[in-house]
Nucleic acid binder design. Structure first.
Length: 499
RNA sequence: UCCGGCGUAGCUCAAUGGUAGAGCGGGUGACUGUUAAUCACUAGGUUACAGGUUCGAGCCCUGUCGCCGGAGCCA
């Protein structure tokens, strides 16, 4: 019985008889030869069967895409094989001959792929994203582990809202109305008073009716909470965490980035120190005429690019109608579709940009930074940018006002570069009992459900704070994805719960 | 919730208001080293649904449903 080898390790078995177990990814055949492309989750292997192997050949030719099988043969180097190693098959055990697999190795629309998400995961691109995600999670856990953090799991069912209740999913809890948690933060604060440095990592739920490429109804958040930490230290932790995650992905997931077409050079620039701005500085930047001039130039550049794209599209469409061979036609059709999407995006940008510029020009202190403002700001830097000290009025009750300027709070947001938006939000917490009670009263909050939270300020209160990192947005940014739905195996989006 | 776009074969898309088409995938056959193989033949349709305008509607109008991404909100 030959040993079963993962395809990734086949190069260590050259000249040996080995078995591989997997699924038929693709098949090509000549008259007297058939190539089976087998995937097993570790890699892709070309297996060769020749017509002289009568029975084996007949079986191999009849296999459908995604058939499950165990193939035994001689591992040998061959420059013509993808990966440089192929298997000269000697025996084949079919677990199931699958027929009519719905996802072909051709272009598909997003709706169709989302409807078949359970199968879409098998495609190389989706599997690569899941591997990057895995590495990022592991890197984050290693980072906390190496820095003396304790993992504390916080409850998913929560009695009320830390922020607006309109954004929470209601659940019936033995007849009582409770909600799916949108953060573990308040509980983490309690844990931090017990353990010093803690973090939680789990699913979190937002009932916001957001249908955009940046939003999920259910997403995973990594939240550290640190006793005795004040705002500058929190920024260091946020910066350190993100750098550790990027670094791990760069060392372990080169192949995946190549497959995804990710610009690795942009990722290699992610190193400390990240630019740090206060909200007030960000507002000044938004209102800076120099920024507006730069944006106008970018707008011009986009207009030029748009024209180029439209010209290119005309050429491609011409080629498409003239294409003789089927696969060329298909490929060109795909290119045309991609280009059209690019043109749509560009047109939207060109149309929106003057509005953004006007909005930025007229930005008034006290407004929240909108998605467009964030995009403008993050585009100014090649690294993630930290923005701190937002107006108190637009932020949550638990955030501590800045000493000497009670109009702003000691919060931090991190914006990812390349227009990916906010990946981290956090703050130093209000640790003074009286101040917290007053703020809660101002917000019209009932203190009773929060007595336990107030206790943390009654018994040995210390300065502390933390933040939440949105895993999926981070994965999207690091993988260079257009849409957050590809960053999680089974995305929960507004209006979609299947599969 | 609001704004915009889309809905044609299993998939990706064509089709001035005038006979619903192509490529891929499926099926059959040919081909001994393919790289999304290629070539020939072939089956495949209530044009999302319901009304309306018209001699005639996939196309125009109204409504419904579904999907997409943007705003608000947020990670």
């Amino acid at each position: 019985m030959p040993t079963v080898a993962p395809i990734r390790d086949l190069c260590r078995h050259l000249g040996q008889e080995v078995a591989i177990r997997g699924w038929l990814y693709g098949k090509r055949s000549g008259g007297k030869i058939v190539f089976l492309l087998v995937r097993d989750g570790t890699g892709l292997c070309q297996c060769v069967v020749e017509a002289a192997q009568t029975d084996l050949f007949a079986t191999a030719v009849a296999l459908g895409q995604e058939s499950s099988l165990e193939l035994t043969g001689l591992a040998r180097p061959d420059v013509r094989a993808p990966g440089g190693v192929e298997l000269a098959a000697s025996s084949l055990r079919i677990l199931q001959n699958a027929t009519d697999y719905p996802i072909s190795r051709k272009a598909h629309g997003t709706d169709f792929l989302m409807e078949h998400r359970h199968l879409w995961l098998r495609s190389p691109r989706q599997a690569a994203i899941l591997r990057v995600r895995h590495t990022l999670i592991r890197a984050a856990r290693d980072f906390f582990d190496a820095n003396g953090f304790t993992l504390v799991d916080t409850p998913i069912l929560s009695p009320g809202a830390a922020e607006g209740a309109g954004t929470l999913f209601p659940v019936d809890f033995f007849g009582a109305p409770v909600y799916l948690a949108q953060t573990g933060q308040l509980y983490l604060e309690a844990a931090a008073m017990a353990l010093g440095r803690v973090y939680c990592f789990g699913p979190t739920f937002r009932a916001e009716k957001s249908k955009t490429r940046r939003h999920l109804a259910e997403f995973w958040m990594i939240e550290p909470e640190i006793a005795f930490a004040e705002l500058p230290e929190l920024m260091d932790w946020a910066e350190g965490l993100v750098c550790a995650m990027v670094r791990a992905a760069l060392t372990e997931r080169r192949e995946e980035f190549t497959l995804l077409g990710r610009n690795i050079a942009a990722l290699e620039k992610i190193a400390p120190p990240f630019p740090r701005l206060t909200y007030a500085q960000a507002v000044d930047l938004l209102r800076d005429p120099q920024l507006h001039r730069q944006l106008e130039q970018e707008l011009e550049a986009d207009r030029v690019r748009l024209k180029e794209c439209i010209a290119e599209l005309a050429g491609l469409e011409e080629q498409h109608t003239r294409a003789r061979q089927g696969w060329q036609q298909d490929k060109l059709a795909q290119q045309v579709a991609d280009l059209r999407e690019q043109i749509r995006d560009l047109e939207a940008q060109v149309a929106q940009r003057p509005v953004h510029i006007e909005h930025a020009r007229n930005f008034v202190w006290g407004e929240d930074l909108g998605g467009d403002d964030e995009t403008l700001l993050s585009r100014q830097f090649e690294r993630p940018v930290l923005i701190t000290e937002y107006p108190r009025k637009i932020k949550a009750f638990y955030m501590k006002p800045a000493p000497g300027n009670p109009d702003v709070v000691l919060n931090l947001d991190m914006l990812a570069p390349e227009g990916y938006g906010e990946i981290i939000g956090g703050s130093q917490r209000e640790d003074d009992l009286d101040a917290l009670q007053k703020r809660m009263a101002d917000e019209g909050m009932h203190p009773a459900p929060y007595e336990w939270y107030l206790d943390l300020r009654r018994y040995g209160t210390v300065p502390h704070g933390g933040f939440g990192l949105g895993l999926e947005r981070t994965v999207a940014w690091i993988c260079g994805l257009k849409h957050i739905r590809e960053t999680i195996a089974f995305p929960r989006l507004m209006g979609r719960i299947y599969p």
